[in-house]
Simulated scan of single mutants.
Amino acid sequence: MTGPPKTPSLAAELSAEFAGTLILILFGVGVVAQVVAGGLGDHDSIAWAWGIGVTLGVYVSARLSGGHINPAVTFALAVFKGFPWRKVPAFWAAQFAGAFIAALLVRWDYSEVLAKFDPGHTFKSQFVFSTLPGNGTLPIGTWGAVRDQVIGTAILLFVVLALTDLRNSPPLANLTPVVIGLLVVAIGMAWGTCAGYAINPARDLGPRLAQYITGYDTAWRDQHGDLYFWVPIAAPLVGGVVGAGLYLLLIGRHIPEPEDFQAAGAERKPEYDVP
């Protein structure tokens, strides 16, 4: 006889978060480098590659860690879904490290391409790695970017909670990562103008540090000269809590618990059947 499944150790969870975030950033930052500096592809290429990167990163890490690969997800789950607060700093560190190493790999592999496209390592190519308000060209300031990141991350967490709530109608056959990836594609296509849809503090901070130590002296500021690095960190954390809270308020609290389905005259759903 076999016993109950072994709970992964914290080290295994952190390894998974590192690897999942690494995969996400390899595809995400890699595609921006290819489109911006290499001249291959367009905005749709960027949106699709980020979404596919999310899907693959979640598949890589979900079994061991739950596939957060985003500090805003980890934080919202700690606030509302019982994720242990003692694990939050460690998860954040693993996610940041994965994003940082992935960005260094992209920076190294695209070094000749970036040097030809932008020899001075200026704002012209800075947003290959980190986000800027208005994507560096449109008249969006710091607080406009804060607004945008709160809204974008709220959308992300609202839908993620809907897709992962077993009491709702989640995707079956292990397709949840695919649908979450499509969600990120949609956010990129609809909400990418004002601040580059970071919606993930690790996605921005890790690559921002990588570019700073490899020659981008302006990495911490935006094109207006304002200190900007904190926006894609703080605003997604706030937006994630807002989105998760709104899901629970508008949807989650109205869905019957498993034991309430029969009492309510509803058919018991297969995912609640326990041997």
Rank of each mutant, 00 (worst) to 15 (best):
Q126M: 06
L163Q: 11
E112A: 14
Q95F: 01
I151D: 05
S111F: 06
G136P: 12
I151P: 05
R167P: 11
G136E: 07
N174L: 13
L161W: 10
Q95E: 12
F158T: 07
G152V: 04
L105D: 01
P170K: 03
L161P: 01
L105W: 06
F117S: 11
T176C: 07
Q149N: 10
S169T: 15
H121Q: 10
V128K: 00
F123K: 09
V106Y: 00
D109H: 09
A145I: 11
Q126E: 08
L172T: 15
S169N: 15
R167N: 14
L161S: 07
L138T: 07
S125Y: 00
V146F: 08
L114V: 13
F117L: 09
N174E: 13
N135M: 13
T137V: 14
G152P: 05
P170N: 07
E112H: 04
V146T: 07
V128T: 14
A102L: 02
G141Q: 14
R147S: 11
L156C: 03
G141L: 08
S111L: 09
L105I: 15
V159G: 08
D118F: 04
A97C: 13
L172W: 01
F129W: 04
L114S: 00
L175Q: 07
F158D: 04
T164H: 06
T164G: 04
K124W: 02
L104N: 12
L166N: 12
Y110G: 01
P177R: 04
D118P: 12
A154F: 09
Q95P: 13
N135R: 11
A103S: 13
G144C: 11
